[in-house]
Write a protein that binds this DNA or RNA. Structure first.
Length: 834
RNA sequence: GCGAGAGUGGCGGAAUUGGUAGACGCACUGGUCUUAGGAACCAGCGCCUAGUGCAUGGGGGUUCGAGUCCCCCCUCUCGCACCA
């Protein structure tokens, strides 16, 4: 009986973790292949950008994924759990310039360092499948896919106004513009005319929207965000004749039922017809100045700021095809060229923006829809009436309700040939051209005689030039490198120029999860058989910041790859877990806030298992996790307690024959708690990955164990049979092993188990053993707890009633009052109503 | 403005179908052992005016019984935002 620590009983996490990591690596313990009888399970965490070092967000993300991978293995699944690097991107160029090195060098150095960091966390990856997207062995296939998409018409080139980030010197996709600023550097984004390559994601808009219904394993929030982003609207597209011109002004509306209420027309300042409309007008110059002013103002507009509605009359009219009304055409600052047709039929009575505009410029308000229970009120309106109702002043459509009128009006326009039913989406095509060096080159060639020509397939990969031309920087964009640009036309053999744009890095991350299934395949981008075996990803884990960009693009690519015949699934990720952020002092960890915790320091001080345990215990995975240094110590203490306990009992556990015989009440109590814990932990993991409650369950079991068999006592005085202690200890180690793998592997070995713990089986629940024989029944009077009763589980309701009414405390309370009703809830409580 | 989510002790967080509110941990308080303790162990720990009183953002309702269901309101977080 000694309280001084034996050297043996000190939890030496450094040695333990190093030993097991070395073993796992040497034996390639987590390598998987398809020729395996077990059912497959594909768990994936969003791969990192190799920024230099991992941060707590990575630790959390990968710990969650690793618990799931290890848990599923113990449940008998053949688990694919890969890791790689989203390795192209701007920071590499900046760093390369700063340190006078090459982006590739910087990137691969970072990868080497971060891979080692991940290894030190004990993450169970199949490292044989590692991918770095900047490797030509990866992006050559992306270039091939690009060419095949081009052939199918999913890739096209156009000259448009693009979002230009001056600080990053490149174009941004719509999804990458946040509140009018660059998603990466927060610089204001400016419009710019440019030729660029686009993916026709809008061709898939309807399917991307429809298949959201299949994503029952995704958080509602993400599904809703995608639905809103795609932004489907159905309505009428309709042509208005311009008076004194052959031109037609085309509009889109979701409220065709209000078309008789049109009193003016608003068009975007950038609308192509503006020039035709104002040409030759007396006010031509004044109007042009006004429009220029609006455009400038728009560009300088701050996010979140709604501008005052303003506009100017063009001097021209168009004709409402439904009633022949002559309608003035205005240029208005609130009309967006990028949505619908860039022209809006204005119905001030039924649209708030049009209403405000009409008030400002004294334009008439004509009410044509009267909501149920109201009367015509166009003279006294203070805001637009947007409710549906009965049509009035609408010719042959009078008396119809909005819903039927919409269809009738569309039908009429269709029959007359000046309109049609139309669906429009907020989603734009995905512009993928980037004027950067560190990206996958777009494999196209421009020839003056033959036009745009694809790079011949046999010439892939079209690799990034490693060395700069003389006088150039190592990461100068391709358009500054003559030696790269100059080529010959594959069609005519004449001199030609290479495309110098590289692809948006989101292209790489849109299909990496497919390539993981066959990362070294050299015949094609994807090995159909292997992809078909592993896909879809059963569980995907990552930050909610990718809810739109990456997750929408990946869904799009999945459908494209399916249509190209590579894969046979419609959706890539069956279940999605969006983990919360790691925050400290109420804010996201960031260098600028100075509240960063470096995982390296923590691993050195407490070991990877403690860091994993705390990050899993402190909050459920989908919620933000508040960092708490004291909490980490608590997790460390918990592991130390288990370590000391198991090491002290080691001899006893090794000798035990493991035969379960319940010889005492303590035996029974421990056995019961053990199986209740198995049940609870399994449920916590299976239902929603709530590892925090799973861990607290194991803590309870350990508390029960040490209460029944305290460590400080002489073990011969234990009133628990060794076999029961052994069962409890084995259970604790197995249940914790997905979360703290080195720790459990070590102790599992110390207690003389015949196999390694990650090759063991998840403990089996004995449902009978978990059942309580006696329980505490609560006795309530009028819904308030007034007493408690110890009873056998299978006791009769009538007996319970009797006992409850006889109870001393209860007797006092109900004295003299008539008992109205007695409610007995099985195994829970008795409520006496007086 | 629209959409989604969340409000529970000093803190992080628990609470199957409505059925003992506060599991588990952190912090804190007292104690044991100690040369010492920032180790380990034991005990306590929602609040108060201490009543079989009050408590799950506030107010109503349904019910024998509400953190949980319904209605109204407040606050916070996130996403979208002049989308015709």
């Amino acid at each position: 009986m000694s309280t001084t620590a034996e050297p043996d009983n000190t939890y030496d996490f450094k040695t333990i973790e190093a030993n097991w990591q070395e073993l796992w690596q040497r034996e390639e313990r987590y390598k998987v292949s398809e020729d395996d009888g077990r059912e497959k399970y594909y768990v994936l965490e969003m791969f990192p950008y190799p920024s230099g070092r991992i941060h707590m967000g990575h630790v959390r993300n990968y710990s969650i994924g690793d618990v799931i991978a290890r848990y599923k293995r113990l449940r008998g699944f053949n688990v694919l759990h890969p890791m790689g690097w989203d390795a192209f991107g701007l920071p590499a160029e900046n760093a390369a310039q700063k340190n006078n090195t090459h982006p590739a060098r910087w990137t691969y150095d970072n990868i080497d360092y971060m891979r080692e960091q991940l290894r030190k966390l004990g993450l169970s990856y199949d490292w044989g499948r590692e991918i770095a997207t900047c490797n030509p062995a990866y992006y050559r296939w992306e270039q091939l896919l690009f060419l095949q998409m081009y052939e199918k018409g999913i890739v096209y080139q156009k000259n448009t106004t693009v979002n230009w980030c001056h600080s990053c010197q490149t174009v941004l996709a719509n999804e990458q513009v946040i509140n009018g600023t660059c998603w990466r550097c927060d610089e204001a984004v400016t419009p710019r005319q440019m030729n660029g390559w686009f993916f026709k994601i809008t061709d898939y808009a309807e399917e991307l929207l429809r298949d959201l219904d299949k994503l029952s394993g995704w958080p509602d929030k993400v599904v809703t965000m995608q639905r809103n982003w795609i932004g489907k609207s159905e309505g009428l597209s309709c042509d208005f004749k311009i008076e004194g011109s052959e031109e037609l002004l085309s509009i889109f509306t979701t409220r065709p039922d209000t078309i008789f209420g049109v009193t003016f027309m608003s068009i975007a300042p950038e609308h192509p017809l503006v020039e035709t409309l104002i040409k030759g007008s007396e006010q031509e110059q004044a109007i042009r100045d006004f429009i220029d002013a609006i455009i400038t103002e728009k560009q300088q507009q701050k996010p979140d700021e709604e501008q005052e509605k303003k506009g100017i009359f063009t001097g021209r009219y168009c004709l409402n095809p439904f009633n022949g009304d002559k309608i003035p055409v205005y240029v208005a600052n609130f009309v967006l060229m990028g949505y619908g047709t860039g022209a809006v039929m204005a119905v001030p009575a039924h649209d708030q923006r049009d209403f405000e505009f009409s008030r400002k410029y004294g334009l008439p308000v004509k009410q044509v829809v009267i909501p149920e229970g109201t009367t015509l009120s166009e003279g006294v309106m203070e805001a637009a009436s947007i409710e549906p109702g009965l049509l009035t002043d609408s010719g042959t459509f009078n008396g119809m309700i909005s819903t039927e009128a919409k269809q009738a009006i569309i039908d009429h326009a269709t029959a007359q040939g000046f309109g049609a039913a139309h669906t429009t989406y907020r989603l734009r095509d995905w512009g993928i051209s980037r004027q950067r060096y560190w990206g996958a080159p777009i494999p196209m060639i421009h020839c003056d005689t033959c036009g745009v020509q694809p790079v011949p397939v046999e010439q892939l990969p079209l690799v990034l030039p490693e060395d700069a031309d003389s006088g150039q920087n190592t990461c100068s964009p391709l358009h500054q490198r003559e030696s790269f640009i100059t080529t010959t036309c594959p069609a005519c053999g004449g001199p030609a120029r290479r495309e110098t744009d590289t692809m948006d890095t989101f292209v790489e991350s849109s299909w990496y999860f497919v390539r993981y299934t066959c990362p070294r395949f050299t015949d094609a981008p994807i090995d159909r058989a292997r992809a078909s075996h592993w896909l879809p990803v059963d569980q995907y884990i990552g930050g909610v910041e990718h809810a739109i960009l990456h997750l929408l693009y990946s869904r799009f690519f999945t459908k494209v790859l399916r249509d190209l015949g590579y894969i046979d699934i419609d959706e890539p990720f069956t279940n999605l877990l969006t983990q919360g952020m790691v925050i400290k002092d109420g804010a996201k960890m960031s260098k600028s806030k100075g509240n960063v915790v470096d995982p390296n320091d923590l691993i050195n001080e407490y070991g990877a298992d403690t860091v994993r345990l705390f990050s899993l215990f402190a909050a459920p995975p989908e919620k933000d996790l508040e960092w708490n240094a004291k909490g980490v110590e608590g997790a460390f203490r918990f592991l130390n307690r288990i370590y000391r306990y198991v090491m002290a009992r080691r001899g006893l556990l090794t000798l035990s024959d493991g035969k379960i015989e319940l010889r005492s009440e303590a035996d029974q109590a421990l056995h019961r708690k053990t199986h209740q814990t198995i049940q609870r932990v399994t449920l916590n993991i299976e239902s929603n990955f709530h590892f925090n409650t799973a861990i607290s369950g194991v803590m309870e079991l350990f508390n029960t164990l040490t209460t029944l068999s305290p460590l400080d006592e002489d073990t011969t005085l234990d009133n628990v049979t060794p076999a029961l202690i052994q069962e409890a200890v084995q259970t604790i180690l197995l249940l914790l092993s997905p979360m703290v793998p080195h720790f459990c592997a070590e102790l599992w070995q110390q207690i003389g188990s015949s196999c390694s713990i990650d090759q063991a089986k998840w403990p089996e629940l004995d449902i009978e053993a978990a059942k309580e024989e006696e329980l505490t029944l609560v006795i309530q009077v009028n819904g308030k707890v007034r007493s408690r009763l110890q009873v056998a589980v299978d006791i009769d309701d009538d007996v319970i009633k009797e006992m409850a009414l006889k109870d001393e405390n209860i007797q006092k309370l109900i004295q003299g009052k008539p008992v109205k009703k007695v409610i007995v809830v099985q195994k829970k409580l008795v409520n006496i109503v007086v």
